[in-house]
Write a protein that binds this DNA or RNA. Structure first.
Lengths: 153, 153
DNA sequence: AACAGATATATTGCACACAATATAATCGCT
DNA sequence: AGCGATTATATTGTGTGCAATATATCTGTT
């Protein structure tokens, strides 16, 4: 008497009841938003994130970049090779531990920082910083939730 | 006296100051979380989203699926062809408007719903529903922000 | 009826993202 | 010193995502 499959209020499979769909949609929109802003810099969004990490500290291993960005070598290795080909980073084996690859910035990579300074402001547009701070904090909580081990054991 | 490039409190390029990085990281973690749960069903996460939409209403055009999921034909066409090859959906030209392609469910696609009922609970694990509701609402606000036209004009 | 513009989907090319696996170097234990 | 286990990165294969473009169909106007 309530419908084909379940009472609407109880149906766990409604798109609008999913926790993760808004997250998924927001990230796709995000990429579309950053794309045109980063294109003049010759960066994609994940490449921009790598640059942010390297502008903070350099050099770093592939593994430490991955730990910071939650990415593994399967994603980072080809990405870093493209950035090396673009002349933004250097990749050299660590002489002290030949398993490691040290990622450093080239002069061009360091200089690009000045061109990137406007990016956060451009993306934020005219939004209030309180609103942005609140949203950031909430999304960060979600990251902590999803990153927690023993999630769905 | 404050650092190489900017006073830490003012630097807009610190990774931890980015609004969008937690979102990006959360979505990657999300995919890793859903992957093993959906694999027994033969679905990827975006394919699961398509199924959620079709289980609500069917058939739908490629365009209406895309409007709901914020995806375009460049993403959906190959995805739907894979789902057709897997025997989950049907793709037929709309007789009334030959530009359109109607996506419907096969019997197997309809039957899969029963196997998917446990997915939301499995993903949620033991989390409180209040916490999840709050996070969902906040992420939805962010979607609205990012989807707003004239964002960074 | 014809035609310009709009609409709906498909195709191409590029760049992620991840699971699974492979390879090479280092470490720990004896 | 030798050797199995661990660690760090690379490779392979599949599946998205998106911009740009192409193709086919439809709509409104004349």
């Amino acid at each position: 008497m309530t419908g084909t499959v379940a009472a609407p209020g109880d149906d766990p499979l409604l798109l609008d009841r999913q926790l993760c769909f808004p997250l998924y949609a927001a990230t796709n929109l995000l990429n579309r938003l950053y794309g045109p802003v980063l294109k003049p810099l010759g960066l994609t969004y994940p490449q921009y994130l790598v640059m942010l990490v390297l502008w903070e500290e350099e050099p770093q291993t592939v593994g430490s970049l991955g730990a910071r960005l939650y990415l593994d070598s399967g994603t980072l290795t080809p990405l870093l090779k493209r950035m090396e080909a673009a002349g933004l980073v250097s990749r050299t084996r660590d002489a002290g531990d030949e398993r490691r690859v040290l990622i450093g910035l080239t002069e061009r990579g360091r200089a690009l920082r000045a061109d990137a300074l406007h990016v956060p402001g451009t993306i934020a547009g005219g939004r209030s910083s309180e609103e942005i701070d609140a949203l950031r904090e909430n999304v960060r909580q979600l990251v902590a939730m999803l990153a927690a081990p023993g999630d769905a054991d």
